[in-house]
């Protein structure tokens, strides 16, 4: 039985275990913008420990960007991301019915009969940029049999983000075709750790890691580049990826969006209302903070959202990782 929110490791701790160290708020982009403890995991944990109900925290919890920077820094090893999603599940959301309807419709779509050994779950953002998707497809295609997955779980990702329960039939419709793939490449960093739970035997990588490991891409990184790591995928596999990107830094000399705790600083600060299109994104301050005090000549992004944020405020070229590869 697939369980959406159950960790495969030892039973995780909850907000009641928070000792109040505050390391989570130091890496929280929402706290950084608001400077308000109530907009931080520590604030929620302490409020819940001392009598607040989940509903009292609704606005702040919905503002969380789910970058999951707080997860690797928590000394108590509280699964903060799971705590936030659990809180969201306890809050009725006006979009629940729409999200459920979207998942039901997707579950009824027929699955393809054949699945290549390597599958790319492109996600909605990449599908909206067909030229870039074609370029990525061509790059990855050179490495062997490869296909863009017919179902990339974009609706599931949004449901997970909103705290809406994913029906088992919809989950099965996503997972079953992927069981035949040996390697899965995921553009959506939120989905990545869940796929790793649902498909424990599969090798699952982020699109950023996959592209940056290609020599054709890697060799064109410059020491004056700012390389923007996609935070969700990075924090989901922090222990391994911190070493991976450190090797990349040593090899290419480029700067990264990493803070002193080696946590990825996001370029955007989009909470649930922005993700659901209920509020306009306002990423300028966050993108400015990433660039603050840096001397760079180009920004290289793994994630298209970051490209849009930097193009708005930066005077230097902004390119997607796939665009670094020689034609």
């Amino acid at each position: 039985m697939l369980s959406l929110f159950q960790k495969t490791s030892a039973a995780h701790k909850s907000y009641s275990d928070c000792s109040g160290c505050g390391l989570c708020l130091l890496v929280c982009p929402v706290w950084h913008r608001k400077r308000d403890l109530q907009h931080s995991p520590q604030g929620w944990a302490k409020a819940l420990q001392h009598g607040a109900a989940p509903g009292d925290l609704a606005d702040a919890v919905q503002d969380c960007t789910l970058c999951r920077a707080c997860d690797p820094v928590c000394p108590e090893q509280i699964d903060i991301g799971a705590m936030i999603l659990k809180l969201r599940r306890q809050m009725a959301h006006p979009q629940t019915a729409a999200l459920q309807g979207r998942m039901a419709a997707q579950a009824r779509r027929p699955a393809p009969a054949h699945q290549e050994k390597t599958a790319l779950l492109a996600g909605a953002a990449l599908r909206a940029h067909p030229a870039l998707l074609n370029r990525i497809t061509a790059l990855l295609g050179k490495a062997g049999a490869f296909a863009v997955a017919h179902d990339d779980g974009a609706d599931i990702s949004l449901a997970l983000e909103a705290g809406v329960v994913v029906p088992p039939d919809r989950l099965a419709a996503l997972i079953e075709p992927l069981r035949r793939a040996d390697k899965i490449i995921v553009a959506d960093g939120l989905l990545l750790p869940y796929l790793a739970q649902w498909l424990p035997a599969a090798k699952i990588y982020s699109l950023g890691e996959t592209l940056s490991s290609l020599e054709a891409v890697r060799r064109n990184l410059r020491s004056t580049d700012l390389y923007m790591i996609e935070p969700r995928a990075y924090h989901a596999d922090y222990v391994r990826l911190v070493k991976y990107y450190d090797r990349l830094r040593r090899e290419r000399g480029c700067d990264f969006n990493l803070d002193l705790q080696r946590i990825a600083i996001p370029a955007t600060a989009r909470g649930l209302p922005q993700r659901l299109g209920l509020a306009m994104p306002d990423d300028d301050a966050q993108a400015h903070w990433v660039l603050h005090g840096r001397s760079i000549t180009r920004i290289v992004v793994e994630n298209l959202e970051d490209r849009a944020a930097f193009e708005k405020i930066s005077g230097v070229p902004v390119v997607h990782l796939a665009e670094l590869a020689d034609d």
Binding site: S19, G20, C21, L37, Q38, G43, K46, A47, L48, Q49, H50, G51, A52, D56, L57
Partner: peptide, 20 residues
């Protein structure tokens, strides 16, 4: 003045003194 705001500060790092 709500409990979510006040409860956040109910104790300090020592965790032996409580007050609202």
């Amino acid at each position: 003045e709500n409990i979510a705001a006040c409860g956040t500060f109910a104790t300090d790092a020592g965790g032996t003194a409580y007050g609202l």
